[in-house]
């Protein structure tokens, strides 16, 4: 009799664990190598701790124990994209490090917000991701050249599968990678067309 009670207890525990839809995910980057169009600039990039360690967390009735690690992917985006845009790229640990070096400008990326939409929330069959960024562009003396505001958007293809637990994860991975692709594309094009950067390029001392 005791055995049956014990077995029932473990069975209920397994059921409860299965119902707890936690989401622990680390996003990865899969975007094409950009075509090189380089500005003749030597750039220092500062990845602040808040970006490197960025983890999106949420815990409510619809999104139980969500923990999506996105920081490392952000570093990958800039590491992959910036060499196609500038002459040289160096990573610095703080602003002081840039002072006595021959850099032309400093870039500090900052995530402002990240949002996800699930099929049951939007009454569609797709997962969606938005990433909002401010890319601070500074002179080596710390003066701001411009702040570039970017929003990367991505969505998964329509989900028609019945394997919903697996698709929740897959859908988010796909939509987030599409958002990274969009963000990186906008980053490259914005640097080439931003009026403040173009003005600074013309007026800066050479």
């Amino acid at each position: 009799m005791l055995k049956i009670i014990n077995l029932s207890f473990y069975f209920c525990l397994i059921l409860l664990t299965a119902c707890e839809q936690s989401m622990v995910l680390e996003t990865s980057l899969d975007i094409p190598q950009p075509i090189e169009i380089k500005s003749p600039l030597n750039i220092a990039i500062l990845y602040e701790k808040s970006l490197r360690d960025y983890v999106y967390t949420e815990n409510n009735d619809d999104r139980r124990n969500w923990s999506i690690t996105i920081g490392p992917s952000q570093i990958e985006i800039f590491d992959q994209v910036l060499p196609s845009m500038f002459n040289t790229i160096s990573t610095i640990q703080n602003l002081d490090e840039a002072k006595n070096q021959q850099y032309d400008a400093i870039i500090i990326p900052e995530i402002k917000d990240i949002q996800f939409a699930l099929p049951n929330e939007t009454k569609t069959e797709i997962h969606e991701t938005w990433i909002k960024y401010i890319v601070h562009v500074l002179e080596t003396n710390g003066e701001i050249i411009t702040d570039i505001h970017l929003t990367g958007y991505g969505k998964s293809l329509p989900n028609t599968s019945i394997d919903f637990l697996l698709d929740e994860r897959e859908g988010l991975v796909i939509s987030t990678n599409e958002a990274y692709r969009d963000l990186a594309a906008k980053l490259i094009v914005s640097f080439q067309s931003d009026p403040a950067i173009n003005k600074w390029l013309v007026t800066r001392p050479k």
């Binding site: 094409p32 190598q33 950009p34 075509i35 969009d182 594309a185 906008k186 490259i188 094009v189």
Partner: peptide, 12 residues
């Protein structure tokens, strides 16, 4: 689209 990245993306 992949080989011309990022100049023919939907937003660019």
């Amino acid at each position: 689209l992949d080989s011309m990245y990022p100049y023919f993306e939907s937003s660019t």
